[in-house]
Simulated assay, not measured.
Amino acid sequence: MQIQVNTSMDPDSLQTLMLLRNSRERLRERVKGEIIFAKPLLLFQERGIIYPNTINIIQGKTGVHKSRLVEAICATLLAREPGHSPNSIGFSRVEPAQRFRVLYVDTERNERDQFPFALQQIKRMAGFGMGDEVPEFDFFSLIQVPRLRRYQALELYLTLDLERVPGVETVVVLDVITDCVANFNNPDDSMLLLDFLNQQISHHNITFVCVIHENPAGGDKPRGHVGTELMNKSSSQVQIAFEQDSKRKETELIKVTTLKNRVMAKQPPVYMRFDADRHELVLAEEELIRQGEDDRRTKLSQGTLLSFLSVNLKEPIASGDLLSLVMDEFDCSRTTALARVKELLQEGNRQLISANVTGPRLEKQRRGRNEFYSIVIPN
Rank of each mutant, 00 (worst) to 15 (best):
R21Q: 09
L345I: 04
D321H: 07
E287S: 08
Q59A: 15
F140Q: 02
N312H: 14
P166K: 14
E293T: 12
F91H: 06
D245I: 03
R149C: 05
F372N: 00
F44C: 01
F139P: 00
E81I: 15
A355L: 11
Y157E: 06
S88V: 07
E155I: 09
K66V: 00
V176K: 04
A97Q: 15
H84Q: 15
K299N: 11
G218I: 14
F196Q: 00
L158F: 09
T207R: 02
T170L: 06
I375A: 04
L352S: 14
I201E: 06
D294W: 10
A318E: 06
V341I: 12
R26I: 12
S319Y: 01
M231A: 09
G348F: 02
R124M: 05
T7H: 13
P86W: 13
D179T: 05
R248K: 10
S85E: 15
Q351H: 07
S319L: 03
H204W: 11
L344W: 03
L362V: 01
E29G: 13
G292T: 09
R28S: 13
Y271I: 11
I55M: 08
I375T: 04
A284I: 02
M231W: 02
F100M: 05
F196W: 01
T16Y: 11
E163D: 12
R367M: 02
R149M: 14
R164P: 00
I206T: 15
V256M: 13
T228W: 03
E315V: 05
D113R: 10
M231F: 03
L322G: 05
G63Q: 08
T258H: 03
N53P: 06
Q2S: 14
L338N: 08
A118V: 13
K61F: 05
M272E: 01
F242V: 00
T107A: 07
G218A: 07
R124E: 06
L309T: 00
A339N: 11
C332I: 08
V341P: 03
E287K: 13
F184H: 04
Q4A: 11
L305M: 10
H84V: 12
M264T: 15
Q114N: 06
E315A: 11
I36Y: 04
S202Y: 08
T16G: 03
L142V: 04
T207V: 09
G33N: 08
I377P: 01
Q199D: 10
D106A: 12
G292C: 10
